Amino acid sequence: MSTTASVTRITPGGPVGPVGPVGPVEPAGRPPRSLGIAWLVWRQHRTTAWIALAVLAALCAELVWLRSAMTGYVAQHGLAVPCPDGDGCAARHAAVDGFRGRFLDVIGYNALLLEFLPFLAGLFVAGPVVARELESGTYKVAWTQSVSPLRWFAVKLGLPVLALVAGASLLSAAFTWTWRPVGHLEQGRLVDGNRWYEAFDALGPAPVAGVLFGAALGALTGLLVRRAPAAMAATVAVCAVLYWPLTAVRPYLADPVTQTRPASADYPPALSGSDSWRYERGMTTPSGGRLPDARCIEASSIQHCVTGHGADGWYLDYHPAAHFQRLEWAEAGLVTAAAAVLAGGAVWRLRRLCP
């Protein structure tokens, strides 16, 4: 506890007496209260932190090995150089199949882990960091030690979130560094199923923004529910619900490239041999309207189907691989803004909990 000092006024005739308190005086050598809370947070979660650090180091080492193995395979079989059409490409096709059989599942498992990082961050913050503290009532001890609720919450949440963001940044950078040398080879066929638009949430800044979102959601859910198991379950459910519309609006975060053809031509080209993200196709009307995916390709007579819909052409909307960075940063900004809103909601809820 702080002690209060007083000052005695000295005059030529001797001391007159105490003037009054001049403020709290901390005992010598006592660390600031925020550092004390930070030390407590570390003591509470140090086992989890060491385990997470060991797992992170193992994953980074595995990704270094994976990149070395994949680039070595590509160099050995000449997959970095396009193959001209002809019988000479038969061996190349076998090499592509061999690459996919050897590495594709490993890439997929790493991508899946990164895609689930927002859920893991939300689970950790909602349960062990926030809800368990409220459920056990230990937060009251800190609040009675001249620590404001907001400072307690900032330190309590700040250290774990900082560690989560740092770990996600390192892991995302390592995975992107590993994936990039092979991601666009053979028009994406080497990593089919993990092309840039299929492994979107595992590449670039997307996992980092997702971790911020998951942590903010977990903090708000923990403050609302105040029971660790229920808060963790609610965080996973809400995170899944909120991420579903995000994948639906993702292709519209940047202007696409549109390809059109007259109705007399074939159905919209599939951009064969390209790793472009083809997300919408259909027919155009004379007035400039669109009929997305009218299923004419499944009709027995395509032209009869086109005439029946009053269409005069085809269209195809797609994002080339060059749009990858633009879409990534647009989504990261959107998710970070949503995380800021959730963090603001958590602060509002904390103030409501204050006595």
Score class of each variant (00 low, 15 high):
A5G: 13
V7G: 07
T8P: 00
R9D: 14
P12G: 06
G13P: 00
P15I: 05
P15V: 15
E26S: 11
P27R: 07
G29A: 04
P32F: 02
R33I: 15
T47C: 10
A49R: 13
A57G: 11
A61E: 03
L63V: 03
H77S: 03
H77Q: 14
A80I: 04
P82G: 08
P84R: 06
D85K: 08
A95L: 05
D97S: 12
G98V: 07
R102E: 15
R102I: 06
L104K: 07
L117A: 14
P118F: 07
P118I: 05
L120K: 07
L120P: 01
V125P: 03
G127M: 02
A131K: 11
E135F: 10
G137H: 04
Y139V: 06
Y139L: 09
K140L: 15
W152V: 09
W152M: 10
K156A: 15
T178W: 10
R180V: 15
H184F: 12
G188P: 05
N194M: 12
W196A: 04
A199G: 14
G204F: 02
G204R: 05
P205A: 05
A206D: 10
L212Y: 00
A215H: 02
V225A: 01
M232P: 02
M232H: 12
A233S: 09
A233P: 01
T235E: 12
C239T: 10
A240Y: 09
P245N: 05
A248S: 13
P251V: 13
A263E: 02
D266G: 11
S272I: 03
G273D: 00
D275W: 00
R278W: 03
S287G: 03
L291W: 05
T307Y: 08
G308A: 07
D317N: 15
F324H: 11
A330Y: 09
L334C: 06
T336E: 00
A337I: 08
A339L: 10
G345W: 02
R349N: 00
